[in-house]
Design a binder for these strands. Sequence first.
DNA 1: TATTGTTATACTCTATAACTATA
DNA 2: TATAGTTATAGAGTATAACAATA
Lengths: 166, 166
Amino acid sequence: MDIPARGGAAFLLAQLGAHAATAFAERISAIGLTPPQAGLLRLLATEPGRSQRELADRLGMPPSRFVPFADELEGRGLIERRRNAGDRRLYALHLTEQGTALLGELQQAGRAHEEQICRGLSPEEHRQLTALLRQVAEEQGLTPGVHPGFRTVGSGKANPTSSFNS
Amino acid sequence: MDIPARGGAAFLLAQLGAHAATAFAERISAIGLTPPQAGLLRLLATEPGRSQRELADRLGMPPSRFVPFADELEGRGLIERRRNAGDRRLYALHLTEQGTALLGELQQAGRAHEEQICRGLSPEEHRQLTALLRQVAEEQGLTPGVHPGFRTVGSGKANPTSSFNS
DNA sequence: TATTGTTATACTCTATAACTATA
DNA sequence: TATAGTTATAGAGTATAACAATA
């Protein structure tokens, strides 16, 4: 009995989760993106035309912070603000062609990331791990594909603060 | 082929890791501790008498931040600064009796946390998951029992910033 | 001269809340 | 009057670097 707290699954999850997030942030910094920026690009790919307010809510950031956040991506030509004809208060945000191209690189980075993190596992073990993680995630009530952390916008350097313990 | 990036093991690890860290922070906030504080108590339990500088290094925080950090725990009677007779520049930090008692509660919280996170798994699945996570952690070169994140001291509320994406 | 602990300062990031324009 | 977007401001938290005491 007596599961060792420091080597238990919960601790390993937190440790590996922070590690995976760091590694991913470092990887996409090579294509000039921070994790929140990547999140917005993906969001616009699947649901184009949303208003800034909707997007800010999805990303868990206040509207006032979303503005400069979107400004930068717009300035880099990755996203586009289109005025909504029906309600001129709203913008509709879309990916530009450049943004779509970068999204492709982002997806490629995601695949490489998966490989990097799981390189120690056989294909069978990889499948097992994924299945177990899915099971835990479901039991914990986590929304598939949605990552919570977004309080921090990320300064560009790979710096995912975790704050668990040591 | 083509591992789905959003539902892959790497993403699930980041998502579950953030979830586990949040849940743990919430749990120990009930006994008045933040994750970094818990980390220090554990460190003092296994390696008492270290200097502040050593401890700050271990926790990944600059010495200037360690000072008020230790001040609070000392003020609450959980730790104690003892002057080193040999080298009077150094303090030797120790747990007080109160601190040791709280450490007991902390360990109990850790066990409950493990159970909460893994409640969706059978005992056999739990063992499998732990083994796979250990394997990945080792392959990734992670130090057993050491969690990276400590840039943020944690304001007391359960707020583990993760910053992956969404 | 180097090191421990400490304090001070300057900076980054953040949310709150005021403001505008549209509705 | 209410809402989308924006801007301004004030506050929290941080690291850097200066400082005092001891070696």
